[in-house]
Design a protein around this nucleic acid. Structure first.
Lengths: 198, 198
DNA sequence: TCAAGAAATCAACACTTGTTTGTTATCCTA
DNA sequence: TAGGATAACAAACAAGTGTTGATTTCTTGA
């Protein structure tokens, strides 16, 4: 019949509790890695009852995941802001936006990639890009089989993510433009297209 | 002075205990993921005292890591079996050996990649390949900067690992030869080299 | 404004986790 | 093969985990 408001997500108390936990978690993440943070110390620092934590999250990892999801949501919005045939106009502009996004969220992303031992972060990143690209992929390039297409996609997405990772770990010293150009070259023409073998 | 034998690793009792734990872990891994296996149930299934487990491993993840390392050791041996200038003779033979190796260890590798939420597995895989390749990389291709070289390497390794991952997840239905050819094409000539844009 | 209804709290539960201590059993080598 | 070394064991520990039920406090719509 009714379902007035989900389950009461916009209750001031809920917002307050989650905010307290969020702040405490970010603080703890600066000191130690996810796997050595206990629910007990988190809720103590946040001054929230331990039972309350379990009302909102399954465990610490679940909480980290939910925080990641907020970031992913924004990333997803970015990807879907382009028209369906955006790839026809070249990779460059999209790649630049992606790297610019990561530039902004670099601190969080780097923290999660570095110390976090949770593959889901990378898996979601890859899955999201792959899903978006595969929509118009087949129209742009002629593959001999769907299988070949899927493997190429895995390769390219894995490569892009690997590049991003090493960029984040290196402190994001290079400009998004620089990386976008490099990525495009690698994706389109590979190592031989970039330079000549001696 | 002395150091007769590490700390007694080749004691029959140690071998026996580790073997019991290994079997029990593999059995449990077929039922559930790493993070929901408790030390208590593992040692019960293995019929080993719980305290004994902690004498050999820090926790479940540490044990999984050590088991991975055995696999990685063999992989490392494979990579280093080639002469230093092996890449001059083409990518194909090396790629075929790599995929053949994964074909053999497919069950373990797939289990770890699928359900395991531990990035270190992929990181080690990437790091190992990158280290090996970078040795002769600079001699084969002319990069404008060392930075560019590093990024290209990250891209290509990430791509290769992404491809491997999707191959494992798909049940390894394709032959190593097939994948080696595809990888080589993507690495050398990218997506445009593979097919023509319409 | 006030009375559901929902969230947060408190307290207690059976459980797992690392760690330690003292004892027993097994190994391997001199 | 006897004996010192050491691994495995049993038992107990403080601390964390995830869950539950009873109670208090807050929020919001009528």
């Amino acid at each position: 019949m009714e379902a007035k408001q989900g389950s009461g997500r916009d209750d001031r108390r809920v917002r307050r509790t989650k905010q307290m936990l969020r702040s405490a978690l970010l603080e703890l993440l600066r000191e130690k890695s996810v796997d050595q943070i206990t629910v007990t110390e988190l809720t103590q620092k946040a001054d929230v009852n331990r039972g309350t934590f379990y009302g909102h999250y399954k465990d610490i990892y679940d909480m980290v995941e939910q925080m990641e999801n907020e970031m992913f949501q924004e990333f997803s919005d970015l990807l879907h802001a382009y028209p369906a045939d955006a790839l026809r106009h070249g990779l460059r502009p999209i790649l630049q936006d992606v790297f610019a996004f990561l530039q902004r969220y670099g601190d969080v992303a780097a923290a999660l990639l570095e110390r976090d031992r949770d593959t889901r972060f990378l898996e979601k990143l890859k899955g999201m890009v792959a899903e978006r690209v595969s929509l118009e992929w087949g129209r742009l390039y002629q593959f001999s089989t769907p299988k070949e297409q899927a493997f190429c996609l895995s390769f390219l997405v894995g490569g892009a993510v690997g590049l991003i990772q090493s960029w984040l770990e290196g402190g994001r010293k290079e400009s998004p433009e620089e990386l976008a150009a490099l990525s495009e070259a690698m994706i389109l023409r590979g190592i031989e297209g970039l330079n000549q073998p001696r």
